[in-house]
Amino acid sequence: MSRIFFASELEGVATWWSIKRRDGVALGFTSHNRDIGFGGITYRAAPGILPSAIRRTASLERDSVEVLGVLALDSIAEADLAAGRFAEARIAIGLVDWETLDRATLFNGTLGNVSQEAGSFEAELRSAKADLELDVVPRTSPTCRAGFCDAECRVNPASHTHLAAVASVDLAENSVRFTGGPGAAEMRDGSVRWIDGPFAGISMQAIDLDGESLVLDRSIGEGVVAGHKAYLREGCDHTIATCASRFGNAANFRGEPHLPGNDLLARHPTGTG
């Protein structure tokens, strides 16, 4: 039988919330004035971090939560927020009795937009209901709908992931040249997952080429230097030609490259004279 909180006038109840980042780091905080441990996580005392509102409904409309807090803890740094370390992190918020450790979860979701102003941050939390807004019926497309090397693509990711080291950095172009990896042309639309340096654990996309260097979608600043290592995942332009010729994977192509487009409806017969 689950605990019913606030059934009496005086209870020792605190708010807790946990953050599980995509790079494997797990953080826990509580509004209590002392640290609390349960579920394998130590929830650090952070009375300044409180949920401002939790809205739960029985409808299909997504639940929303906003959290206000103070960037005073070493585990939540402005630099980490700016670098995207908390992007799409899994969030859980609940109540706990700090004496008995009876607890209940009020919210599960992911971290959305984060804004920072005057030493504090405001984070948008998206509930699991947001997944109901996804279109589960595939739409016709001339390009492949599958993600490269995912379960639908079925290309072995180990064959197209390489450990490489930074050879040089061009801050003006926000580009990096690697050694030990594939050629730059094979990395177009690919990804870089850092295992060294200030962005360790963060993935970036190769959005363009600068000669043999990769132009990345996030600013690298001056933290990336020669010798830093990363895993390079080759890219795919999701066309049937590339799928067949480069990867020999046309049988798993998830698209309709030869389906007539909407312009077919506007065509009309013409006389031959």
Results as ranks from 00 to 15, higher is better:
18 S>N: 03
52 S>V: 05
272 T>W: 13
19 I>G: 01
73 L>F: 06
218 R>L: 05
23 D>E: 08
130 A>W: 10
157 P>R: 06
54 I>Y: 05
272 T>A: 13
103 R>I: 00
66 E>S: 12
83 A>H: 13
233 R>A: 09
152 E>K: 13
268 H>I: 11
260 P>M: 08
2 S>M: 10
230 A>D: 10
177 R>L: 05
237 D>V: 07
104 A>L: 10
208 D>M: 11
135 D>T: 12
114 V>Q: 09
203 S>E: 15
91 I>Y: 04
263 D>I: 09
127 S>W: 05
188 R>S: 03
65 V>R: 04
239 T>H: 07
168 S>E: 13
53 A>V: 05
171 L>I: 07
9 E>W: 06
115 S>M: 08
124 E>Q: 15
238 H>D: 08
176 V>W: 04
113 N>I: 09
267 R>A: 14
59 S>A: 09
74 D>F: 00
48 G>H: 10
37 G>F: 00
255 G>Q: 14
183 G>T: 09
43 Y>V: 04
263 D>W: 09
150 D>C: 02
122 E>R: 15
259 L>Y: 12
141 S>K: 11
138 P>D: 08
125 L>C: 10
225 V>G: 04
74 D>P: 13
149 C>W: 00
103 R>M: 01
163 L>I: 06
179 T>Y: 01
18 S>W: 00
51 P>G: 06
96 V>I: 10
146 A>G: 01
36 I>H: 03
89 A>F: 02
111 L>S: 09
228 H>D: 15
143 T>R: 14
171 L>H: 09
143 T>I: 11
56 R>N: 12
136 V>A: 12
219 S>Y: 11
